[in-house]
Amino acid sequence: MGAIGALERLVPVVLAFGCGVVLARRKVVPAESSKAFADYAFLFAVPCFLFGNIYRSDLGALFAWRALSGYAAAACAAAALVGTAAWVLGVRDPRAVALRIMAAVQVNTAYFAVPVFIMLFGDAAPVFPVLLFQVCVLSLVVISVMELGRPDRTGGPARRLGSAVGASLMTPVVIACNAGIVLNLLPVTVPRVVLDSFAFVGDSASPVALFALGLHLGGSGLEVRGTTREEVCLIGFKCVALPLIAYAVCRYAFGVEGDWLRYLVLIAAMPAPQNLFVFAQRYDVGVGLSASLVIKSSVVALALLPLWTQLVARPA
């Protein structure tokens, strides 16, 4: 896929995202309504999309364990690098270190990777295993650090941690993924009318999620001049270094080639996760930093996507 072909396939992504930015800037649609659109996408449309697609998928092909192990190893290596760098540079609060690791290593799957993969490949299935790895492994580690380091909570550490982990695992996205996997494995046939209904709602997930992100950006604004050196380093690591680490680890350490290598590099090139800001608000740590990273990494990732798409299209 050449640069022109990549740009053509990304036009719908830019259109939905850009429309949100323009309408919010012109105050045609209130920027505050981005939360309502985002909640619809994350709590309803995306779970519908994930359930139907996972239920219909070939799980053997979907969970390519060598590829996923390579991505997990790359993510762990990247997390160690970011955590060590933050500590060396004077960040001593474990919660602040965890937030920076989340910003640099986790990716925006539901709101960004899913619609991008649909536009580029007509299928977002390769995103699903990485989404589960993020929610069930990476996010749980971050939540554990945040909960154990939170000074304003009552109850013992075990109780607080158990409550946070339970809440994380009971999100609609995780429930939809697990339900799709279980019903795929069991000799159970989901009625066609149910799958068609889920598909109808799920088809709206991509444009609504991107529109919500655009509304958020249009309302918040983008202050390039106020970007700190730390923000530049974290965004550069997220949008450039992490895809390169994923490529090197997956290809040379785990022997991943072909389509899966391309998928994993593109997934790693996605921006910082939108729930980074949610975590920062909930645990009252790095709120301003997280909001800036989510917005600016989304813009940088969108600008670099045609380049990454062209690079990964070349034979490994």
Rank of each mutant, 00 (worst) to 15 (best):
I175R: 06
Q134V: 02
A158M: 13
E147Y: 02
V116F: 06
A158E: 14
L132N: 08
T171F: 06
F117L: 01
G155F: 01
I143E: 13
F117R: 05
N178W: 12
A167G: 07
F128P: 06
V141I: 15
P172F: 00
S163I: 06
I175K: 09
G180C: 00
E147T: 09
C136L: 15
G166W: 11
V182M: 11
M170E: 06
I118M: 14
G149N: 11
G155N: 02
V127A: 08
V165P: 00
V127F: 06
L140D: 10
G166L: 13
G156D: 05
L148H: 03
C136Y: 14
V130G: 04
S139Q: 13
V114Y: 14
G156P: 03
V137T: 14
S144H: 08
L186E: 05
L138Y: 14
V173K: 05
I175V: 13
R150H: 12
P126V: 02
G155K: 01
D123T: 04
R160H: 01
V141S: 10
M146W: 04
V141F: 14
F133A: 15
L132M: 15
P187M: 00
S139H: 12
I118S: 11
A179W: 03
V114D: 01
R150Y: 10
A125Q: 15
A124T: 06
T171P: 08
L183V: 00
A158R: 15
A179D: 03
V165A: 11
L186T: 02
C177S: 08
G156M: 02
L132S: 10
S163P: 06
I175E: 08
L132K: 08
G166M: 04
G122F: 09
F117C: 03
P126C: 01
G180V: 02
P115G: 04
P129E: 08
G149H: 08
M170Y: 07
V188F: 11
R159G: 02
A125C: 06
V114I: 15
F133H: 14
G162V: 02
R153W: 10
R160G: 07
M170G: 08
T154N: 10
M119R: 15
R150C: 11
V142W: 06
S144D: 02
R159D: 10
T154Y: 09
P129N: 07
I143C: 14
G166S: 12
P115R: 02
V114S: 03
L186I: 05
L138G: 03
G166D: 04
S139N: 12
L131H: 14
I143W: 13
A176G: 04
V116W: 09
G149R: 00
G162Q: 04
M146Y: 00
L120H: 06
S144W: 09
A167N: 12
G149W: 01
F121H: 13
S168L: 12
F133V: 15
F133C: 09
G149L: 01
G155Y: 00
G155L: 00
E147P: 01
V141M: 13
Q134W: 03
